[in-house]
Nucleic acid binder design. Structure first.
Length: 638
RNA sequence: GCCCUUGUAGCUCAGCUGGUAGAGCAAUUGAUUUGUAAUCAAUAGGUCCGCGGUUCGAAUCCGUGCGGGGGCACCA
């Protein structure tokens, strides 16, 4: 006589054991139609799972995350069914739900083509129409292993072997086709619906390990309705339109070429943007008490050996041999150089905290497959800084770094920031007592920031704990940008010390921090966040002056000179094109302000302003325009 | 690095099963002097990514190298 407690608190009593399907029936017809899975005391179960004891349940429909995920999981199964029907001999491996969809990894000698995907989709729809009923069986381990081995499903057999002893080995059937699976699943393939799409094929290592063989992964997306599917596909399309590689070309900011894969050729406009960001940072960092330095790009091998980079990071380092056979490395990080500046001359405790910033260009030999536009490059500029301080100063300094980062992000339009805190990894250097102290100090700063944070256990650097700053962009994507790391190792390795109050020599703590992380990457993020329509103050081409006809060229030039002289990035377009053409051209290249001058403007000594994405025109005295827009030509917080 | 895919004019792309290349935009020149998202015409523009092979003949087929894209691994 199970008593079933519903989410609204009501209790329904059944005479004998009961399934989720029956409970839904009892509640309402519409619920029983929409029901997909059920939570029984918080555990997700199939709708025909038999409930014998008292419990509380929640029946999930496509309106819940659980319901949608089950649809996706079942779609993955249907995908595997279709593939095995169409391509006998293909082995199945795993097929989990991911954000917005699912994938399934297959082992097959021939590659799947784009055409195959269409064929598979068609077959999937057939299977859904066949409405194969689902049922679940629990098998004995050895029997299951034998069964899958015999069926030529080597990977499945291996998965079963790795299921912890004591855990059930459940097999799901959809008609005759069956697969090892934890479940839960819909009651039949017909429940899946047809609102799915296979999106891409890709390679993926078996068990995610690059030492293993490569499988073929088919990605797909699935939704409860056509509308949601279309919306999702639209979102993808919109994101593609923002792609910084495409916009960077269209806006004439930068390009890449074969001679230096993963390194940026910055064009004038892109470089102006780059320099504007640096100028902005210089002001903010000066206020925050940083001293800017600069260290060599190329340093002798010996310092990299001392710092540990040669051993730990050598794989990613560019080296260079001189004609006289000396080996130098091109810096992959700025820290050793900075420590050498600290080491020059005697430092006192009175000098601490000493904050040295550097816009340092570093080179790292990244694997070719990792490169991606500005987001992942082989040569990039860090807005780096190293703070030398005492252990007691870690919390305050970390907090002031956090505040600086938040201010800077906010100025650039990102106010949604979360933190990731990582503590000691298994392989590390230094005494556990020192770790205790530095972790506590850093965590205190994290908490004091009052930001949302997550803890990544064991993911700190080998030399100390770290925080990563993650910002969310306009279309909801997260980007890891800033980082703050406590370093208890490098200062000692490179012989840094200061004279303490009592006259003794002590080793300082070093904080590594970067705000944007990489200027290149951050510019990529900015472009995508704003879809190329950069805020006025950071825009590398702010104003274009357009005469209505060549008769007004002189006036336009005069205006252009005035605007340039107050430090705005301005151009004048004297080309032999009509007004409509010029407006279209410059609007497409996303210039925020177009100034139109004709007879009217010359007579009244005004300009007519046309803002990007607005057809409204505003006529204004030249003097007033200069006043307003020179005030707008700086960061909001400055 | 690994799997798949891709490389034609400055850009975006067409070029079927092998017969040495074409469009639109941009550029140049000329005409036009224009009031808020494409004025007209003419001209010029190519080592079809590199190397090798098959073939009477290769942008096209094969091999290989390099680059791009989608993933995986990597992101110290």
């Amino acid at each position: 006589m199970p008593n079933i407690k519903l989410p609204d608190g009501n209790i329904i009593t059944f005479e004998k054991k009961v399934t989720g399907l029956k409970i839904a029936d009892k509640i309402s017809k519409s619920l029983s139609k929409q029901a997909l899975v059920i939570s029984v005391d918080g555990n997700l179960k199939d709708l025909n799972f038999e409930i014998e004891n008292d419990c509380s349940v929640k029946i999930h429909t496509s309106k819940d995350k659980e319901g949608v995920e089950t649809i996706r999981h079942d779609t993955a199964h249907v995908l595997a069914m279709a593939v095995q029907e169409l391509f006998p001999g293909t082995q199945v491996t795993i097929g989990p739900v991911i954000e917005n969809g699912f994938y399934y990894d297959f082992a097959r000698n021939e590659p799947f083509t784009q055409k195959d995907l269409q064929k598979i989709e068609k077959k999937m729809k057939e299977i859904i129409e066949r409405d194969e009923p689902t049922h679940r069986e629990v098998w004995e381990r050895e029997k299951a292993i034998e069964h899958f081995k015999k069926a030529g499903e080597i990977y499945k057999a291996e998965i079963i072997k790795s299921i912890p002893k004591g855990e059930e080995v459940s097999i799901y059937f959809h008609g005759k086709w069956h697969d090892l699976c934890r479940g839960p699943h819909l009651t039949s393939t017909g429940k899946v619906g047809k609102y799915f799409k296979l999106t891409k094929v890709a390679g993926a290592y078996w068990r995610g390990d690059s030492k293993n063989e490569m499988l073929q992964r088919i990605y797909g997306t699935a939704w409860p309705s056509q509308k949601e599917l279309d919306e999702y596909l639209n979102r993808i399309e919109e994101a593609e339109k923002r792609d910084h590689r495409k916009l960077g070309k269209e806006m004439d900011l930068f390009h890449f070429r074969e001679e230096s894969p993963g390194s940026v050729f910055w064009h004038e406009k892109g470089w102006t943007l780059f320099q504007k960001l640096i100028e902005f940072m210089r002001i903010k960092q000066k206020h925050a008490g940083y001293k800017e330095i600069n260290t060599p790009e190329i340093l002798d091998r010996s310092i990299w050996e001392k710092s540990g980079h040669w051993e730990k990071f050598g794989q990613h380092m560019y080296t260079s041999t001189t004609p006289d056979e000396k080996i130098f490395a091109i810096k992959p990080m700025n820290c050793p150089g900075c420590v050498q500046i600290f080491n020059q001359g005697l430092k006192s405790y009175r000098d601490l905290p000493l904050k040295m910033s550097e816009f340092g260009k570093v080179h790292r030999y990244e694997p070719s497959g990792a490169l991606h536009g500005l987001m992942r490059v082989r040569a990039f500029t860090q807005d780096d800084a190293h703070i030398f301080c005492t252990e007691d100063q870690i919390t305050d300094e970390s907090l002031s770094v956090t505040n600086l980062i938040l201010e800077i992000y906010k100025d650039l339009g990102f106010s949604n920031v979360i933190l990731k805190y990582s503590d000691r990894p298994e392989i590390r250097v230094g005494d556990d007592k020192v770790w205790d102290k530095s972790e506590a100090a850093l965590l205190k700063a994290v908490k004091a920031s009052k930001l949302e944070y997550s803890v990544n256990k064991g993911e700190g650097a080998f030399y100390g704990p770290k925080i990563e700053f993650v910002l969310r962009d306009a279309i909801g994507r997260d980007w890891q940008c800033g980082t703050l790391q406590v370093d208890l190792n490098l200062p000692e390795r490179l012989g840094a010390s200061f004279v303490d109050k009592d006259g003794s020599k002590k080793i300082p703590v070093m904080l590594h921090r970067a705000l944007f992380g990489s200027l290149e990457r951050f510019i990529g993020i900015l472009i995508e966040n704003y879809a190329g329509k950069l805020p006025f103050w950071i825009n590398p081409l702010q104003v274009i002056v357009i005469p209505v006809s060549s008769e007004f060229d002189d006036y336009a030039k005069k205006i252009y000179n005035k605007i340039s002289s107050i430090g705005l990035n301005c151009e004048v377009d004297l080309k032999n094109h009509n007004l409509n053409y010029k407006i279209r051209e410059h609007s497409l290249s996303k210039v925020p302000i177009l100034l139109i001058c004709g007879k009217k403007e010359v007579d009244s000594h005004t300009v007519t302003i046309r803002q990007l994405d607005s057809t409204k025109q505003e006529n204004m005295e030249v003097r007033k325009f200069l006043e307003i827009y020179s005030a707008l030509n700086k960061a909001p917080s400055i």
